[in-house]
């Protein structure tokens, strides 16, 4: 097992439309909070409103977090990024 199995960091921007907000949803009180994509919005209030529109029919709880505040670490590069490394080699 490698020393650091989650050694790959993905840090490219995701703000294609506006500031991006990672969205987490819990459907029932006993469920775990799960990632359910992201919304684009210039402020937390608007992000919350957009998330509510999308998930209020199913969610017991919604959490939002600015995407740039999330450290994305994983075991391997997804194929898109892996190819960049090959190209740059």
């Amino acid at each position: 097992m490698p020393d650091d199995p989650l050694s790959v960091t993905v840090d490219e921007p995701r703000d294609a439309v506006s500031r991006e907000w990672e969205l987490f949803v819990r459907e029932h009180e006993s469920d775990p909070l799960t990632h359910a994509g992201s919304v684009s919005a210039p402020s937390a209030d608007i992000a919350r409103e957009q998330a509510r529109q999308l998930f209020d029919w199913s969610a017991e709880a919604l959490w939002l977090c600015p995407a740039e505040a999330v450290e994305r670490c994983q075991a391997e590069r997804a194929s898109a990024v892996a190819a960049t490394e090959v190209d740059e080699a």
Partner: peptide, 23 residues
């Protein structure tokens, strides 16, 4: 253009995920 995956091309302000994170 940043690799965010959307439900349709018109629905740009919600993303399911990003191809830089998984396929």
């Amino acid at each position: 253009y940043q690799g965010n995956v959307h439900l349709t091309q018109f629905w740009q302000n919600y993303s399911l995920g990003n191809v830089r994170d998984r396929s």
